[in-house]
Design a binder for these strands. Sequence first.
DNA 1: AAAAATATTTAGTTATAGCTAATAATATAT
DNA 2: ATATATTATTAGCTATAACTAAATATTTTT
Lengths: 224, 224
Amino acid sequence: MEKPILSESQEDYLKEIFKLRELNLNVSMQDLANKLNVKPPSVTGMVKKLCAMNLVEHEPYKGVQLTETGEKIALEILRHHRLLELYLAKHLNYSWDEIHEEAERLEHVISEKFEAAIAELMDHPTHDPHGDPIPSADLVIPDSPELAPITLHKTGHQLTISRVMSQDKDILNLLSRLELIIGRKITIKGNESTGVRLKVNENQYLIPHSIAKLVWCHDDEKAD
Amino acid sequence: MEKPILSESQEDYLKEIFKLRELNLNVSMQDLANKLNVKPPSVTGMVKKLCAMNLVEHEPYKGVQLTETGEKIALEILRHHRLLELYLAKHLNYSWDEIHEEAERLEHVISEKFEAAIAELMDHPTHDPHGDPIPSADLVIPDSPELAPITLHKTGHQLTISRVMSQDKDILNLLSRLELIIGRKITIKGNESTGVRLKVNENQYLIPHSIAKLVWCHDDEKAD
DNA sequence: AAAAATATTTAGTTATAGCTAATAATATAT
DNA sequence: ATATATTATTAGCTATAACTAAATATTTTT
Ligand SMILES: [Mn+2]
Ligand SMILES: [Mn+2]
Ligand SMILES: [Mn+2]
Ligand SMILES: [Mn+2]
């Protein structure tokens, strides 16, 4: 009674609405079309259907948002996705940039049993390999430390890389070659017009702002 | 060039044609409709499409069979399925009767990387938990010992259960409760009108023919 | 060789989820 | 306030993969 059967497409819409809402204030039809790689008329059609199912609400030109039921489903899929990513990395030797694509397909087909089995095996983890929080079995998002992109942190401070806001293979590959991975301590040496100068281990890099703003860090020196 | 992209449905058709061909001489449209839980007109339509793709050949009233390309794809899916079944059983604590359903969905979405990873982890196994042979990475079916259903073996002989020809949850559950599992040694005590009397460990059972014929065994006493 | 039974196909329908081109509604800029 | 740009929707089309009801072809039985 509680669980309507949704198509993979519908699940992806709900998940994407959730993720966009986490960032933006409101989610436009355009935003969804971009993220889901479909055209706006397709979004209109699907959002209409999801409205009818009471999974989303839509005020044209104002935004789409999830109902309580819709959010639960989104969190369920997100949990699948992030548990899978961690599982693939830890148990099947996938690299950072390979996990997203595989999880994107598997998330829709694993059973609750599969979900529970890998969660158990990994001792109920709270964050995936990108630093994204994994909703708990009862669909609560765990607290994360206070984070901000490198570009917003103070020069001179020591930071811990805690989350990477991209699933792009090339970006992730680049970051891991520069050792800019989750948990790494870095120091901002300076903010220049072309990018941010960082000290990573013994090395120094100038990374472009476009990359820097994707890397979210905790400030180890901040007192609060 | 070598790999057309097929729908899940199409993959299931190819797999089912392969499995039926292993048993029957020819595979009718009806057979396929039954196995795939669709109606005959749906089969006509899909077989026509698969013919056009050169994956199957069809002589009406005579049967459907796979082309070389079609067979390769069928074996690829079968490999996914059987590797997954074994993986679920060995690494995620699934029981005998739970693995099939999950593998049925996962088989279509795992990548070649995933396939390779679990094959490696399990040391390139040749048989799944039902005793079904797992096609190798280059799609060759491994040799199995000479097997026949319990119903065709000689009274008094000691047998080793080597393959179970069912994916039905209830049947598998029943069999495992009776300890009639892969690798178990049994002895046929007699063939009666209602069924076959077996000695399993220290116990004796009379199991109906309908069940007995699903359990395929190797004759440990046969000299050949 | 007909008749009956079985197997297969055709014709026409449905549902899902996309698309383009055109239209309408709203927001923004002048 | 009006014009322009942006955003969203409608209308109509496509493809996939089912379905039912009816027609046709083949095999089997009498
Ligand atoms: Mn997905
Ligand atoms: Mn992630
Ligand atoms: Mn399947
Ligand atoms: Mn099996």
